[in-house]
Amino acid sequence: MNDRVEVRKTYKLFIKGAFPRSESGRTYEVHDTDDKFLANAAKASRKDARDAVLAARAGFDGWSAATAYNRGQVLYRVAEVMEGRREQFIADVQAAEGSGDKKSARVVDAAIDRLVWYAGWADKYAQVVGNTNPVAGPYFNFTIPEPTGVVAAIAPQDSSLLGLVSVIAPIVVTGNAVIVVASTRRPIPAITLTEVLATSDVPPGVINVLTGDPAEIAPWLASHGDVNAIDLTGVTSAELAKKLEIEAAGTVKRVRPPAQPNWLANPDLGRLRSFVETKTVWHPLGA
């Protein structure tokens, strides 16, 4: 038996590329599926959510202006760095979800592959969902997708890594910035992911990760005037979902409803299309 005392990690939030504690000073206990203590995670507050929105808005400007090629490479880089930490992710998922070695490995591999899949869409989706329009007149007219802006997302509660990646990748690949609230009871794979994000050329503010209680944090995000859309995928309470939709209506946010899909299944473009705007440009033709 190794008698070395391990160095344990402090688990914090991920805002603007840095790792702050919650400004509230609060934490909550995280346990594995056998109820064994794993860590104290930061319990994000309203102030943390607002800081994350500020960071996301600042991050959005540069990220949405980056070339599609660049965004694709950054997301691919995230996959590369995840691959290097594969064993850690498998251990994290195993502890969080109580899944066996094989299942955990399958989930981590799927998460990495999903990032690669979405990374490749960065410079293709505009070709698939954009077009020119043959208007009846002497005009050149074209339609292109543009990112919606700042998106708040509630990550799946069960699928702590694959579900999380499947939610945030389609949001950011098109140029949006995201504030994601990680699975409340299974936040550790998300926190490990933030360490990958911090070392993968993801610009600060593009992906911000909060841990804590969606019922406490999400209403502030849903009503925030500088959040353009909200993804309720991981909201498990119909009552909370309704409340968030009501808050979101106050600023005409785009809302993606709660869902519990099979995350191992191959996705389509639905999530990606959920957080883009359609812009149409007209110009006269003439010699």
Binding site: N133, P134, V135, A136, G137, Y139, N141, T143, T148, G149, N228, V252, E277, T278, K279, T280, V281, W282, H283, P284
Partner: peptide, 21 residues
């Protein structure tokens, strides 16, 4: 959602119309 350059208020069934924000 709709940008008119050197023209304004043009509409066509083939041209998507609608807003941001």
């Amino acid at each position: 959602g709709v940008i008119w350059a050197n023209t304004f208020n043009r509409f066509d069934p083939t041209s998507p119309f609608g807003g941001f924000k």
